[in-house]
Design a protein around this nucleic acid. Structure first.
Length: 285
DNA sequence: GAAGGGCCTTTGAG
DNA sequence: ACTCAAAGGCCCT
């Protein structure tokens, strides 16, 4: 990578690149030694953190453009100390904040995020990663950075033109049909995914749930991880158990009831609280 | 209408 | 070799 310019960015706030990229939000970032490689939009980016300094290597042209791209992706616009003070209301979550300090909600591309969480249905993180890599490797444009190769995630149009059968061959199972159908709807312009960012949470969620393969949980993931809805609080198997065991929530609660409980407790940053509890539950149950 | 159960694909862990 | 769970959703009763 010596032939590439290295940008050094000073991060004046909590950031833990590894926990952020390895917390089940994004599925195609790869770690080699101290470097993390991934595609943001059309560009291949490598990140390496030393304390409060973030080193960036990229194929994306102008320095300022790259800094903007990375800052936006890492949500460096979030005031994370303030978020900690709002959600740090009990010992359990304070422990999680102290263990995973600097873990950030990421602002990823809505289209890739949507497909990622369709793949997540009844699956697990290693397998979701392999599904997503397989889709990008087979149908996305290649980028290189030194010896590293990455792939731009194929557009809705690209995937719509494939249909279900080639996706089935990638071993993604029953999710292939959902992906093919969703791609068709988005490519045809019947739902403006990017426009959801400007709608209120509830309304945007209803729009997403009108898509095949998208229910409450997947919709909340897409809203939280790509559409700036920090009040979205995806309740999956892990979080459900965490709520039951750690907060003694009635296991008979329906999704909406779990959500309401979380929103009452953590308000507009319920999504952040959820992410710290998710990481705790997986790594230190 | 809502609540519960079966089913869907494949993988990796135990 | 076998069972089970996995960042769920849909369809049927």
């Amino acid at each position: 990578m010596a032939e590439h310019e290295i940008i050094e960015l000073n991060i004046g706030q909590p950031l833990d690149i590894r926990h952020s990229l390895e917390s089940g939000q994004v599925f195609r970032w790869q770690r080699q030694e101290d470097w993390h490689y991934g595609v943001i939009g059309e560009n291949l980016i490598a990140l390496c953190q030393f304390g409060s300094v973030l080193k960036i290597v990229h194929d994306a042209g102008e320095t300022q453009h790259v800094i903007d791209l990375v800052s936006k992706f890492l949500r460096l616009d979030d005031n994370i100390e303030e978020i900690y003070s709002v959600i740090g209301t009990d010992e359990r979550i304070k422990e999680a904040i102290s263990a995973y300090r600097g873990l950030r909600i990421l602002r990823q591309d809505p289209w890739e995020c949507l497909i990622g969480f369709i793949c997540s249905a009844n699956s697990n993180i290693p397998r979701i990663s392999s599904s997503m890599r397989s889709i990008a490797y087979n149908y996305g444009a290649k980028r290189t950075l030194g010896l590293f190769e990455g792939y731009v995630f194929p557009s809705a149009e690209d995937i719509a033109s494939l249909g279900e059968t080639p996706l089935r061959e990638l071993k993604i199972g029953f999710r292939a049909r959902y992906i093919a159908r969703v791609a068709e709807i988005i490519a045809a312009g019947k739902l403006d995914l990017y426009g959801l960012k400007y709608m209120p949470y509830e309304e945007a969620k209803e729009e997403l749930k009108s898509l095949p393969g998208i229910g409450d949980k997947v919709a909340d993931c897409v809203l939280l991880f790509s559409l700036d809805k920090l009040e979205a609080c995806p309740i999956d198997r892990w979080i459900r158990r965490a709520f039951e065991d750690w907060y003694l929530i009635d296991s008979r609660f329906k999704y909406e009831e779990f959500y309401k409980w979380a929103f009452d407790k953590w308000g507009g940053f319920a999504g952040y609280a959820q992410q710290y509890l998710f990481q705790s539950r997986r790594l230190a149950p």
